[in-house]
Design a protein around this nucleic acid. Structure first.
Length: 874
RNA sequence: GCGGGCGUGGCGAAACUGGUAGACGCAACGGACUUAAAAUCCGUUUCUCUCUGAGAGUGCCGGUUCGAACCCGGCCGCCCGCACCA
């Protein structure tokens, strides 16, 4: 028996060095084997990683290693989402350069990731802040522009008047700038947009092709795109000249509705405060202008929007009802969004909560037009609130008696056929919630938008031969605002078209642009063109993409749009970048606070004699809080280095895969990591014991005894089942199977120690050990290499094949069937695997326990489910 | 408010998608080995009872079925996404 413990601290760096020296994780594009691309969402280099960051990389690594063993040419790269605001904040706080800070973090985190023993092809590493990467992105931007997928328009931003800077939504807290505390204003700025809304329909339809995505994510994207079918309706303005109205008002107002059936319940029209007509009226109406101003000032936080009261301003205008109803007043209302539909609505208070609130406040008529099923029209009232359900139309002339869908159809037809001017009054329309993607950021640390603004030529693309537009290094962060804007020379250039003095665009791109194609960059070999069509077509789509649910919408939707657009521009052949998606759960950890409410690191807490948590050294009592996502601020983090030093990273990897289903949050506990450690040692011992009992590799004997055969069956079943579990990413189940097999193997070894080790048993023991090591190799790769060596196998297990399963060993000759009487389990019977139902039935009826239960009577019915169960109905 | 998901021992969870509920692990308890400890190994561990056996049991109530954790209806509780989208 082996007595040495497995020394992970010594073995792990040794194997990592060997892997590294032999370059076995370097992927070649000319490898003829079938491809498999596994990718974890690349990290933002924020400083240091903690063990909580490791889970998705470990999961991806298990898949990568498994697929390699299964004979695939695996691409498993890593890079850095390296642009972004935190680098600028760090620059301000630490008086350092964002690039320096970023690259230092990358260096640290790269070493930490390497510590985890991940089988990554580091030769393809990229950082999005590298000019070779963002230069290509600038080229893509210009192609988008040329192809009509990018454009510029005015759009509102959050403006901090003290810091003189634009704020991201998350930097606005309770309507104030997070740093300055100043009240945030909304300002209009000319900004660049990608026309993602034009792709709404294809992005929606494409979701149906993504069969290996979680339903939840597809649903979230579906809701985000927010397709709705409705009707555009033109309401003619009644031009009875009212006092003080400006000349040249438009003849009509167009609204969008999904409830045209409620047209006869309409009691007002409402315009958005940003509607062109509102602006026209406000120009000569100071009271309205003030009202619009008030609406604009409304808070930006969700809490404020939620509780905001409905407010309206009666313009004094009236419109005519298109179908012989009463004239309707036109309001401007704070709850009508300009960005959706036409920026104007008709209000039907009886059947819409918002309209109901509004009508109640301004004392407008509330006419019910939809009667719920089985309700008497005389007693039906909407005084307590609107009715938004299905029903039958009434109070609605031509629609009376129709169901809601039938009424929608009839109104649509009627309005389509009613021609006014040269166009129908009503037109069916599809609307999407999805808006265009604003990519301009008034920041330094991002990809510069390659545009030059000329007073005569307007915005002009930077010529191809002048790309990339590099960020200047000599910038200062001692004043608020965008350093590119105040740089002494950077932005002053000549117009590429007319040669006159011009200015560079000083906005940089949203970092979601950077992450929308990095997976395509990994496809081409290091040093080659960043976006090579052939390479992208070879490797994409990503076969298995792994990351957090927090990216379920934006990153994944933007990437889908980006790839589709690259496809239209002829840059890639595929339409969907990620064939398989998995969203993993977080690692959570208890939180600790001392008596003064200060957060404590886990290593600052221990148990006293009575098991109470106390502070190390002082013995001061400690309060334990609920497990939460690991975060620096709450100090509930575990650094990978500590785990590596005490238990080894294989233990950490095993722990992260075990027990909890991968999509759920998993709690990091010391008991858990100790359990993983015990099991790692157990595998080591089992393999060592097997080698002692069966020291030599021998040819497979022809015949096997019962014990040997049983062990072989278990081993082959293990390899088959774990393969399936890993394919389905059910790592916790795979781990449980390995545990169960270890128990079986342990018993077999104990029995073998007592008796003779016959050649067939020796073969079976060695085979079992080899299978065990092969099966755990993707999960605990260092331990597996060490065991591989103990087994005397040549080469590295990292390059070995998955254990070869003999299908004959998977099928048992006989099966044990449970026997139920009236649905309750009463016994069991062993029958041949291929026994016919009639044979089983006969054997069951012959049993004593059945005879007793039947007590002489004939059974009413016997259900035999082959290889499953027998149920006797007495 | 709208949309979606989930409720199984002291805990994390399995259950081949309608067929032996609780595999496997953690924790706990008992035992072996040891001068002792660590490590390891062997047991016990859903609940109840009249305990060599029997009954109940997958949030609660009901239904479908020979058979339900799984399907259907209605409650209760928790979690997530969206949020004035007309």
């Amino acid at each position: 028996m082996s007595t040495e413990r497995y020394n992970a601290r010594e073995a792990e760096p040794r194997w990592q060095k060997i892997w590294d020296e032999r370059g076995i994780y370097r992927t070649r594009n000319d490898d003829p084997r079938p491809k498999y691309y596994v990718l974890e969402m690349f990290p933002y280099p924020s400083g240091r990683i903690h063990i909580g960051h490791g889970r998705n990389y470990v999961m991806g690594d298990v898949v990568a290693r498994f697929k390699r063993m299964k004979g695939f040419n695996v691409l498993h790269p890593m890079g850095w989402d390296a642009f972004g605001l935190p680098a600028e904040n760090a620059a301000i706080e630490r008086r350092t350069h964002p690039g320096k800070w970023t690259y230092e973090n990358i260096a640290t985190m790269r070493e930490q990731l390497k510590l985890l023993g991940l089988s990554l092809d580091w030769s393809r590493e990229i950082a999005t802040c590298d000019p070779s990467y963002y230069g290509e992105q600038q080229r893509i931007f210009l192609e988008f522009l040329k192809g009509g997928f990018a454009y510029r328009r005015e759009s509102e931003v959050n403006w901090d008047p003290v810091d003189n800077t634009v704020l991201a939504n998350e930097q606005v807290i309770d309507g104030r700038g997070w740093r300055s505390g100043a009240l945030v204003e909304r300002r209009k700025l000319a900004q660049w947009f990608f026309r993602i809304s034009d792709a709404s329909e294809e992005l929606l339809a494409g979701l149906d092709t993504l069969e290996r995505w979680p339903d939840k994510v597809r649903l979230m994207q579906r809701n985000w795109i927010g397709r709705s079918e409705g009707l555009h309706v033109r309401f003619v303005l009644d031009h009875t000249p009212a006092e003080g109205l400006p000349e040249a008002l438009p003849a009509e107002i167009k609204v969008y509705t999904t409830r045209p059936d409620t047209l006869f319940g309409a009691s007002f029209l409402a315009l958005s405060p940003s509607h062109p007509l509102t602006e026209q009226l406000a120009a000569t109406n100071p009271a309205l202008a003030t009202f619009v101003e008030e609406c604009r000032r409304g808070g930006t936080s969700t809490a404020e929007i939620e509780t905001q009261e409905k407010m309206g301003y009666d313009t004094g205008l009236k419109v005519r009802h298109p179908l012989d109803g009463p004239d309707l007043p036109v309001y401007v209302a704070n709850f009508v969004l300009m960005e959706y539909g036409t920026g104007a609505i008709f209000g039907c208070p009886a059947h819409d909560q918002r309209d109901f609130d509004f009508a109640t406040k301004y004392d407008l008529p509330i006419t019910p037009v939809v009667l719920p099923p089985d309700v008497d029209p005389a007693s039906f009232s909407v005084a307590d609130g609107p009715y938004e359900g299905e029903g039958t139309l009434f109070n609605s002339r031509l629609l009376d008696g129709l169901t809601v869908p039938a009424a929608k159809e009839k109104v649509a037809l009627a309005l389509e056929n009613q021609i006014l001017g040269n166009a129908p009054v009503g037109e069916r329309a599809v609307n999407y919630r999805l808006r265009d993607w604003g990519i301009s950021r008034q920041r330094y640390w991002g990809c510069p938008i390659p545009i030059i603004h000329c007073d005569t030529c307007g915005p002009v693309p930077v010529p191809e031969d002048q790309l990339p537009v590099r960020l200047p290094d000599d910038v200062s962060f001692d004043q608020p605002g965008n350093p590119l804007d105040r740089h002494p020379s950077w932005k002053h250039v000549n117009c590429p078209q007319c040669g006159a003095g011009a200015r560079r665009e000083t906005d940089t791109m949203d970092t979601f642009v950077d992450s929308s194609w990095y997976f395509a960059r990994f496809a081409s070999e290091p040093g080659s063109d960043p976006l090579q069509k052939q390479a992208a077509d070879q490797w994409l789509p990503v076969d298995q993409y792994i990351g957090g649910v927090e990216h379920a919408i934006l990153h994944l939707l933007y990437s889908r749009f980006f790839i589709r657009t690259l496809n239209k521009l002829g840059r890639v052949s595929l339409k969907e970048p990620f064939a398989g998606l998995f969203t993993q759960g977080m690692i959570v950890h208890e939180t600790y606070k001392d008596t003064e409410g200060r957060w404590l690191f886990p290593e600052e807490v221990e148990r006293d004699g009575e098991g109470r948590p106390v502070k190390v050294g002082t013995g001061e009592p400690v309060t334990i809080g609920l497990p939460e996502k690991m975060s620096k601020s709450k100090k509930n983090v575990v650094p990978p280095e500590i785990v590596a030093d005490t238990y080894g990273v294989d233990c950490a990897r095993w722990f992260m895969l075990a027990d909890t289903p991968p999509e759920r949050d998993s709690e990091w506990t010391s008991a858990g990591i100790e359990g993983a450690w015990r099991f790692v040692q157990r595998i080591w011992r089992l393999v060592g014991d097997a080698v002692v009992l069966a020291p030599d590799e021998i040819d497979r004997p022809v015949d096997f005894g019962a014990e040997s055969l049983a062990l072989r069956r278990s081993a082959h079943k293990l390899a088959a089942q774990v393969a399936e579990d890993v394919e389905r990413l059910r790592f916790n189940v795979a781990v449980a199977r390995v545990h169960a097999f270890a128990n079986v193997f342990n018993d077999a070894l104990a029995a073998a120690r007592k008796g003779d080790v016959t050649p067939d048993l020796a073969f079976a023991l060695r085979e079992a050990a080899t299978f065990l090591v092969g099966v755990v190799a993707p999960m605990v790769p260092h331990l597996a290499e060490e065991c591989w060596q103990v087994l005397g196998r040549a080469g590295l297990i990292a390059e070995a094949a998955w254990p070869a399963v003999d299908p004959d060993l998977l099928a048992e000759d006989s099966v044990t069937l449970p026997i139920q009487i009236n649905g309750k389990r009463r016994g069991e019977i062993v029958v041949a695997r291929d026994a016919s139902p009639a044979e089983v039935e006969k054997a069951v009826l012959a049993l004593d326990l059945i005879a007793q239960a039947l007590d002489g009577r004939a059974p009413k019915r016997i259900i035999v489910v082959p290889q499953r169960i027998v149920n006797v109905v007495a």
